[in-house]
């Protein structure tokens, strides 16, 4: 089975927020809510400052606390690419999945259901890229099948150093940041 993931080059990301706006537009994300966002992390002491800018979203983890805690099966792993999705008609809005995510990637949509990044599965299933990947002006984002050793994402991971967010939380995230 394919395992969709993203590889994001932090050396290229400038934090322009194009991906954020693209997602809001594509997915009609309600005002005041974010499915993706920009994080700027700085380390060190002047003048030796190290700064990493990265775009973040649900990591579509391989080990998903948000799916196992869901009492109705609304939160589930999609057949295509192992993408983690929420079925709105099954969701009771109990918020357990929001609490269970170590990345705080979920929120409650004003209509009452749990919401988050879908990897734009509606586009991906048509052979398109997720909206955020499509618009990135620096081409820092790559999307593809991590289980295919010949995919662009797998090759990038073979050739570059990378990290994931909070590996210690044990969720096995599928978004990788090149460093």
């Amino acid at each position: 089975m394919a395992r969709f993931g993203m590889v994001i080059d932090t050396k290229k990301c400038v934090g322009c927020q194009d991906c954020v706006i693209a997602c809001k537009t594509e997915n009609k994300v309600p005002e005041g809510h974010d499915r993706d966002w920009i994080v700027t992390e700085s380390h060190g002491k002047f003048p030796d400052i190290l700064m990493e800018i990265r775009t973040e979203r649900c990591n579509h983890c391989s080990n998903t606390p948000c799916v196992s805690c869901c009492p109705t099966g609304a939160s589930h792993i999609h057949d295509v690419g192992g993408v983690v999705l929420v079925n709105h008609d099954l969701c009771i809005g109990c918020k357990a999945c929001v609490e269970s995510c170590p990345y705080d990637a979920r929120f409650i949509h004003p209509d009452g259901y749990a919401d988050k990044c879908t990897f734009c599965i509606h586009r991906v299933e048509k052979g398109l890229k997720p909206a955020c990947v499509e618009v990135c002006p620096t081409y820092c984002m790559h999307f593809g099948d991590l289980d295919d050793p010949n995919s662009e994402v797998s090759k990038l991971l073979q050739s570059r150093k990378y990290h994931v967010n909070l590996p210690e939380a044990g969720t096995q995230p599928n978004i990788f940041y090149l460093i």
């Binding site: 927020q17 954020v20 974010d34 966002w37 700027t40 992390e41 700085s42 973040e56």
Partner: peptide, 9 residues
Amino acid sequence: EIFTTRNNP
């Protein structure tokens, strides 16, 4: 320091 643009209610 970490700064995020996310601001979900």
